[in-house]
Nucleic acid binder design. Structure first.
Length: 236
DNA sequence: ATTATTTGACCCAA
DNA sequence: TTGGGTCAAATAAT
């Protein structure tokens, strides 16, 4: 097995193209350790979905950090061994709210561009974050509504409608930004990925038109705390 | 059987 | 000596 410093010599050639989030700190700095041969880029993000950033990660450790209530989990790129990708990330929960907010510290850029998902998929993952966060918040505040309709839940259906409508909006953006090559009605990798995610709600393959009313209602129901970490600027 | 995760041990900089 | 980061054997999941 490669020693821990072996991959530090790799160059960081490609941008990772992760979905937009609240980026608190984005910096490059020379490590204090003299034996490190390259500058190591790091950035810290806060997100409600630390495990869905468009890349595949493998956990290699977990540690309780002094002064923290929650453990820090260590992940490296799944293709670390195959392609020598140097990207790693640390994930730690920052509070006990519902949904909990996570701090994610990314170290090094991906060099395994084969793992890089399209902006389309990243955007879809972003939509999923918004919908899931919205669903969890409503379930906490109005738990009785989640038991409507034989347990399938009114809220879940609303959630699916939100996802469908937001996806339609996103699809329109993609279709108009890539010269019309995006096939809105086809099953996309993003949609297939979502359907295979056990934590994700099911999504109808039939896309609903993006309703201005729904869009407006959705935005009005969101409190400012949901805008900032999820960066809804692109949506508004 | 293969792949991913868990977790105690180890390394090393501060 | 301490604490953060990583290793690697054991275990779990697929």
């Amino acid at each position: 097995m490669a020693k821990r410093d072996d991959y530090m010599d790799s160059s960081c050639g490609c941008s990772n193209g992760t979905p937009k989030r609240l980026v608190q700190d984005c910096s490059s700095y020379a490590q204090a350790h003299a034996k490190k041969k390259v500058r190591i880029s790091t950035r810290t993000e806060y997100t409600y979905a630390p495990y869905h950033d468009g890349y595949q990660w493998r956990k290699y450790g977990q540690k309780m950090i002094r002064g923290n209530a929650y453990p820090r989990c260590y992940y490296r790129c799944t293709y670390h061994q195959d392609h020598g990708c140097p990207a790693t990330k640390h994930v730690e929960q920052t509070n006990s709210q519902d949904p909990p907010l996570f701090r994610v510290i990314y170290t090094n850029e991906h060099t395994c561009c084969s793992t890089h998902v399209s902006d389309y998929m990243a955007s879809s993952i972003h939509i999923q974050q918004i919908a899931d966060a919205s669903l969890r918040k409503v379930e906490v505040e109005i738990p009785s509504l989640t038991h409507c309709f034989d347990g399938h839940g009114l809220i879940k259906e609303e959630n699916d409608a939100i996802i469908s409508s937001l996806t339609a909006i996103s699809d329109y953006d993609v279709a108009t930004s890539d010269g019309g090559h995006a096939a809105v009605q086809e099953d996309t990798p993003a949609r297939m990925s979502r359907s295979s995610n056990e934590a994700s709600p099911s999504i109808s393959p039939v896309l609903l038109p993006a309703s201005d009313n729904l869009k407006t209602d959705f935005i009005e129901q969101l409190e400012p705390q949901w805008f900032e970490p999820l960066d809804l600027g692109w949506f508004i």
